[in-house]
Amino acid sequence: MSEVEGREDAETEETQEDARPKVKMPQARDIGRSGITPHGLAATKGRPAPRSGTRKAAKRRKVIYSAVAVVVVAAAVTGGVLYANRPKPSVKFKGAFGKAPAVSVPKAKPAPKQQVKELIHGTGPKVASTDFVVAHLVGYQWGAKGGKELLNTYKKGTPATGTASQLTGLPALDKAIAGRTEGTRLELTLPYASVGDQVAQALQLPKTDDFVLSVDVINTFGKSASVKGTQQTLDKSLPQVTPGAPGQAPTVKIPSGSAPSKLQVKTLIQGAGPAVAKGKTLIGQYDGVLWRTGKEFDSSYKHGAPAGFPIGVGQVIPGWDKTLVGQKVGSRVLLVVPPKEGYGSKGSPQAGIKGTDTLVFVVDILGAV
């Protein structure tokens, strides 16, 4: 394009511009604050910054953004807490204490750690680790597909008995019982490692599964347990018994003269409890002395806790089986046991008992289960 043509075009544009109506552009001071549209929320690169009149709105936006951020973070945290604290699968034991519970095992793997829960709190005496304990157990295998019953002493009618620290052979269970109170029901979930190969094999528990059980602490007998009542006097031809202080053995005085040749049983205190049945576990305190020397050869008091013996089934000396079956719980009895009803002609060398020794026992019958 030539220089002349360019000048003509410029003059034409100026003429057109002069022909347009003149409009006065408003100044910022002439515009009310309400007429300004806040454009910072959608600002893009190259858009001018908001005027001074929008500072309050910008501050409001900042507050809104902060609030939104807090809500988002709180939601995330809350969601995480709910996820972390969601209920873990658990076995349900339902029913009254002292009766076999109804058991429901979920179809889900249990938590990997050993757990102990107190389902029912007992109001009886506290259990010491050396106390003799009677407890009923109900145990289940627990795997991903649910579980099945492996142990139920209620069905057998024979509770577990023994000192609290050695009741079952499961260290975790025995440890959990000590310090509890009589009348308590516990729930234990034990990984296979806590059960151990020997017990697991006896229970037929697979290595992939856990063992869960309820424990009802039925009775506990401490070292000072004894029967109550006024003691009867005996014929002078028999050993004389003086009761000891709580937790201490009685004093037994052997009379002069020869020991009786036949088995003797005399009631010192008559109990009011049920009769001891054959096959039950008799729980009692006992003290044994030799007629020959008057010296003690064995005593539950010396061991620090009552003892339990299956009675009437050949697990103790014949003199005990023949005299203690039928006795009432709560009784104190004196037994004079000739050699043939005791350890026989071989005696018991480790206890200092000869084959010709007559044995004298004082037995407090505390219970029979």
Rank of each mutant, 00 (worst) to 15 (best):
P206E: 03
K56A: 13
V369M: 01
T168H: 01
A49V: 15
Q115T: 14
T158P: 10
G32L: 14
V72Y: 06
Q231C: 11
W320Y: 09
K109H: 12
P206F: 05
K148Q: 15
G330A: 07
G35K: 13
K340I: 03
G98W: 12
G46M: 11
G326K: 05
V363C: 15
T37N: 10
Y140P: 11
K92N: 04
Q204D: 12
A307R: 06
F93D: 01
T181P: 03
T267E: 04
Q198H: 05
V133R: 06
S34G: 15
F297C: 03
A102W: 06
V70D: 07
D321H: 03
K92R: 05
K94T: 00
V227K: 08
G169F: 00
P106M: 03
Y343G: 09
L167S: 09
I317D: 02
R185C: 04
G273Y: 11
V195F: 01
F93Y: 06
G169S: 01
A160P: 04
P89C: 02
Q204T: 11
S348C: 05
K354C: 00
P110M: 14
T208C: 01
N85L: 11
G80I: 12
A275E: 03
G179C: 05
D216S: 14
A111K: 08
G32T: 14
S66M: 15
